Amino acid sequence: MPLENAPTLTLHHADSSNSGAVVATGIWQVHALADRDAIKTIIKTLASLKDNPKLAWDLSGIVSLDHIGAQMFWNCWGKQRPAQLTLAPKQEELFKRIEQACVAQVVKPRRSRLTAVMILGFGIMSFFEHLRGFIGLIGQVVQDLLRFARHPITGPWREISANIFHAGFQALGITALVGFLIGVVLSFLSAQQLRTFGGDMYLVNILGMSIIRELGPLLAAILVAGRSGSSITAQLGVMRVTEELDAMLVMGISHGYRLIMPKVVALAISMPLLVVWTDAMALIGGMVSAKMELNLSARYFLQKLPDAVPLANYVIGLLKGVVFGTLIALVSCHFGLRIKPNTESLGHGTTTAVVTAITVVILADAVFAIIFSDVGFD
């Protein structure tokens, strides 16, 4: 039984030059095209009219048209609009979507013709662009700190406290574990060498100087960069994706004063405390290993430690903690604010922030080693 308003094609005024007009009527939707006999006829008719640029098409008489029916016409036209085409207003939007999808599939990625010099140039330009943004971020944080100092009562104390808890207190476990294990390994390996030369008493000097001056601050900074730095970047990135940052600007809330400055202050406070904690755990691990390998008692270890490590090394370690924490927070916030509102940029930005933060920390540690090369070796 034929369906009411069945899809039909009518060719008018055809002549020997293959010119004419094709008028489509009826319902061109998937349920109407499901009729086996009707679809065979339509496919045969469309095949005979395929790739004929002289035909004029009139689809304005179609009662309703969905994507399936429109795709049949599009394939018949050779995936491009014919020169003479009449559409209803609703059909125009449907064919525009099909046309855009077709263009997206046809466009092939262009082969990159960038030379090594051009790649180097783009890399240098990107570096200086990041450097400019980073310096601007530092200036903004300084301004926010001055504002905070002038009006401490209205400052973001709750945000600072929350960031100290997340970046500092919750990192005690992992820093203690890594610090203890590093102390055990360093003490064990040093004891093996010192035993050969009979220099067992110098184990305290090696552990004290290496852990308090170098390894403790560096280990704590790397762990915080991987743990808290990625968290800061991801948090700001998600706020960008969900448009929370834009909403804050609309409400007149400063990103720097409520988001960035509290994180910088919190890490500047937390990192020195984490450095002391990591140093203590590493020294405990070293004492345990020294007791097992060289039979050095904990009392001997603690008595010799103040003489082996001058006070200046403790100060340098704490200063490193403040600088490392500030740099980690600034780098993480810098990349977090540059994330675009899509998930791909979020993952890439978080990874880049962690790698950059660790690199900056190691560079800063090298600068400290050069500046304080003659300090703390009395």
Rank of each mutant, 00 (worst) to 15 (best):
L215Q: 05
G121R: 12
L194W: 00
P306H: 05
L33K: 04
G136T: 00
L203P: 13
T86K: 13
G347K: 09
E4M: 03
A298T: 12
K54F: 07
A34E: 09
A329M: 09
T175F: 00
T86F: 07
R147V: 04
G285A: 12
I328S: 07
R227A: 13
D378F: 07
G121A: 15
L120G: 10
A21V: 11
M281F: 14
V309L: 15
D51I: 00
A268S: 10
S48T: 08
M261Y: 02
N313W: 01
F335H: 07
T25M: 10
V204W: 07
L33C: 06
L94N: 04
E92L: 11
S297Q: 02
A104L: 14
S254M: 06
I135Y: 04
F73T: 11
S230W: 12
A14T: 14
V322R: 04
Y257T: 03
V224T: 13
L346Q: 14
G173N: 10
A162R: 06
A225G: 12
L137E: 08
H13A: 10
M248F: 10
A56E: 15
R97C: 14
N342M: 02
I160V: 10
E244I: 02
G252I: 02
I98S: 02
N163R: 12
L245N: 09
I362A: 11
L114P: 02
G133A: 03
N163I: 06
I206N: 01
L294K: 03
Q143P: 04
A56I: 07
S187M: 11
L327R: 04
K304E: 13
G61H: 15
R158V: 05
